[in-house]
Amino acid sequence: MLKRKHEESSKREHNPYRRRILFFLLLGWALLLLGDRVSELRVYQGALIAIYALAIGSLILLTGYSGQLSLGQGAFMAIGAYAAALTQIYLQPPIIITFISAVVVAALFGAIIGGGAARLSGPYLAGTTLALALGLPTLANLFSFLGGETGLYFDVGIAPERFGSEFTLYKWFFWIAALATLIMLFFIQNILKSRYGRAWKAGRSNPAAAQLVGLHVGRRKVLAFTISAGVAGLAGALLGMVSLVAPSTFTLSLSFAIITGAVLAGLTSLTGSILGGLVLVIIPEIAEMVSGNFGESEAVRANIPGLITSLLLILTVLFTPNGPAEQWHHHKEKKKQKAVEKQKN
């Protein structure tokens, strides 16, 4: 009985890779069909969800797995966006190259900053990355080629002819964003399930033990920071594509929003990142409805989304610190265990 169970589980372990590919392909196909059936605004929001999900994914890798909390994901997003926009303006390469340059440049910055940050723990790292998120956008005013407050325009062009004339610009954005996000999330998912992911978890849970089995915890942390920065850079380039590459896009609130999304999604589950992106886009919608009931006051409209997200953030961290998804999973496991015990008796 036990042996068969073991075989079953090892069979399941054998092809998680293929199952993951299948899952992502199905998801992509469903999104494709959905993109044709909803209004322009929803398509735009779909692109935003994808972008947020990607940024949240980068934070989940960094915080949930490697245990480093960064409040500066917005800064890396800004670096990626500026890198993509500058590449596009000065070199005009194929569109995919601009996105790759965003990843590479952001990862490079991540490696430099991560080299210092890997030595820091908890609040020190959080404070340092906060200073980065607040300080970096001011650099845009220092160098004239960065465009100052007005920023740069990152032009990815219109959709190729063969998609037909009814293919709108926003749908094109949605396609690029969703595709990039799906590919990247797939990539992150695989890294997290690999020995790197396990090493990060080990370094996070018990650094001394991880070092004892021969893991170089510091170097792994720098690696996590680099990858996370690269992914965030791509998310930033995508955000720059749908809005503007300017300091006003990459504010501290963006960094905070991404943390909120990651915490609500559960910091330790990557699948939650899409849910987190969804929440970040839906909450302003809800807030709009709520503030409609209070009359059209500007103060209410500007502050209700912040109030809702921040309250959710506090409640989540106070009562389900590992995220609602994890909590539910835990609950299910316990139930299963109980059922097994009952059967035994």
Binding site: G67, A126, F256, V263, L267, V317
Partner: peptide
């Protein structure tokens, strides 16, 4: 897993 970052998140 998130014990070390929970205070930061809560104060944020």
């Amino acid at each position: 897993p998130v014990a070390s970052v929970a205070p930061v998140i809560a104060t944020l």
